[in-house]
């Protein structure tokens, strides 16, 4: 029974990684940049939801919505102010370093506003636990909501990219910005939209994460952010199904490693698996082969 319970917890944690990884992978696919501040947007989402529900006493659903709005706007602002002026820069390193700067900025801004003491985040999910097999298997409401949210987000996002004009425009921009412009696509607008979607998803991930692991500090987003980045690379960066697969697998491996091998070594095992996958398949599990055109 413990295996099943580990598996479900792993899928739940993996679902959070998957939602965060979507943000990394979409932004990478379109802007060809690694947004290392993405993890901290999750944390801001957590604080936004915390402020709304705990301090202002707004209902959970509205608090989540508010967090999504805050993070979406934050994502667009970060893209416009910090990254857009550098997209044409000579070195992609300039954007990468700026992203790290934005990450520190967000952490310290929150530190300044909310202080360094971790907040105890009260779960915004009020679904009762599911008890199976005469109570031997207990699945928490948070777990159920997290897994369902991840599946819904995946389905909606896949439909959006494949069936809508804007989604197709995103694919076109990710392939060839110049040709996309010549087709009449507003490339900067599309990149901003991608940041908006990724950051909105980060807010949901933040709420789900804090509901399951109820401690919120300015550094809450850092580790899940890095893990989700690993998940995105693991699944094949730039690929939406890859982010999903990578996230779930990473979550399951992490929880299994914690359960059966060692709590301390679990992160080492996670990164070890990443290294092996990248050695065997450098573009990740579902990553596209990079074609060299002559």
């Amino acid at each position: 029974m413990s295996f099943l319970s580990y598996l479900i917890n792993g899928i739940s944690l993996g679902s959070v990684y998957a939602i965060i990884a979507l943000g990394y992978t979409m932004v990478y696919g379109i802007a060809r940049m690694l947004n290392f501040a993405h993890g901290d947007v999750i944390m801001v989402g957590g604080y936004a939801a915390f402020t709304c529900s705990m301090t202002l006493g707004i209902s959970p659903v509205l608090s989540i919505l508010a967090a999504v709005v805050v993070c979406t706007l934050l994502g667009v602002v970060i893209e416009t102010i910090a990254y857009r002026p550098l997209l044409e820069a000579a070195s992609p390193l300039a954007v990468l370093i700026t992203a790290i700067g934005v990450s520190y900025f967000l952490q310290n801004a929150v530190l300044l506003i909310f202080g360094s003491n971790p907040k105890s985040f009260q779960s915004l999910i009020s679904i009762p636990d599911l008890k199976l097999a005469d109570g031997a298997l207990n699945i928490s409401g948070e777990t159920i909501v997290t897994i369902i949210s991840c599946i819904v987000i995946m389905v909606v996002l896949t439909l959006f990219v494949n069936k809508t004009k804007m989604g197709q425009a995103m694919l076109a921009v990710s392939e060839d910005k110049g040709a996309a412009q010549l087709s009449g696509i507003n490339v900067n607008g599309t990149i901003a939209l991608t940041f908006a979607i990724g950051s909105g998803l980060a807010a949901i991930a933040g709420v789900l994460l804090c509901s399951s692991y109820p401690s919120l500090s300015p550094y809450t987003g850092a580790m899940p952010g890095i893990k989700a980045f690993v998940a995105a690379v693991f699944g094949g960066i730039g690929s939406i199904p890859g982010a999903f697969l990578g996230g779930i697998l990473l979550g399951v491996i992490e929880i299994m490693a914690k359960g059966y091998i060692s709590t301390q070594l679990s992160d080492a095992i996670v990164f070890g698996v990443l290294i092996i996958v990248l050695l065997v398949k450098p573009s990740g599990l579902l990553g596209k082969k990079i074609q060299e055109k002559v």
């Binding site: 197709q168 425009a169 694919l171 076109a172 392939e175 060839d176 040709a179 996309a180 087709s183 696509i185 596209k288």
Partner: peptide
């Protein structure tokens, strides 16, 4: 757009 179909390219 080489990863998109011919029809998707034309629609773009």
């Amino acid at each position: 757009f080489s990863n998109m179909t011919v029809l998707q390219n034309l629609k773009m």
